[in-house]
């Protein structure tokens, strides 16, 4: 687990912090994630996807559960994501080949695409909630989300 921590903690912590926005809560969630990963490891099915995807989703779901369980959203919803503490700290440079810089990614994404991805992926919003939040038709939200992910997928193609 120590090896696991050293390999994944930075990425998981970054995502969790992005979602919960508070460092001490991010630490709690990271720990809960490790416990959950440990206990449910046998349910990981390699044929369904990469380990990293699975691990990431465990942590992301826990983090989203966390912000939904608290009265959290009231305050953070109005806070623009770009101003959250997570973004003010520069991402640590790493040398993983699969790691594409945030800067590069965001320049490839249109602002409205990025906004939707962030709400869906880091905000724990459903698509209809995003539509409500942004005052857009649900169809538009879906189209933009798909387009955004296609862009991301293309980046690593």
């Amino acid at each position: 687990m120590t090896l696991f921590y050293d390999k994944y903690s930075s990425a998981l912590y970054g995502v969790i912090l992005r979602i919960v926005k508070k460092e001490e809560i991010a630490e709690d969630v990271l720990q809960e994630s490790l416990v959950k990963i440990w206990h449910s490891f046998q349910s990981y099915d390699a044929s369904k996807g990469r380990l990293f995807t699975w691990v990431l989703n465990v942590s992301r779901n826990l983090a989203i559960d966390k912000i939904r369980s608290r009265q959290y959203r009231v305050g953070s919803r109005t806070q623009p994501i770009e101003e959250s503490a997570a973004l003010r700290q520069a991402a640590t440079p790493t040398f993983r080949p699969e790691h594409i810089g945030l800067q590069e990614m965001t320049t490839k994404l249109a602002p409205e695409q990025k906004q939707i991805i962030d709400l869906l992926y880091f905000g724990g919003f459903t698509q209809s909630e995003v539509a409500e939040e942004l005052n857009l038709p649900l169809g538009t939200v879906k189209t933009r989300a798909r387009a955004a992910i296609k862009v991301l997928a293309k980046l690593i193609r």
């Binding site: 995502v15 990431l56 699969e98 991301l152 980046l155």
Partner: peptide, 12 residues
């Protein structure tokens, strides 16, 4: 993989 990379771009 694309989404993972996006997530990983937030590595901290």
């Amino acid at each position: 993989h694309g989404l993972d990379s996006y997530a990983q771009a937030h590595t901290q």
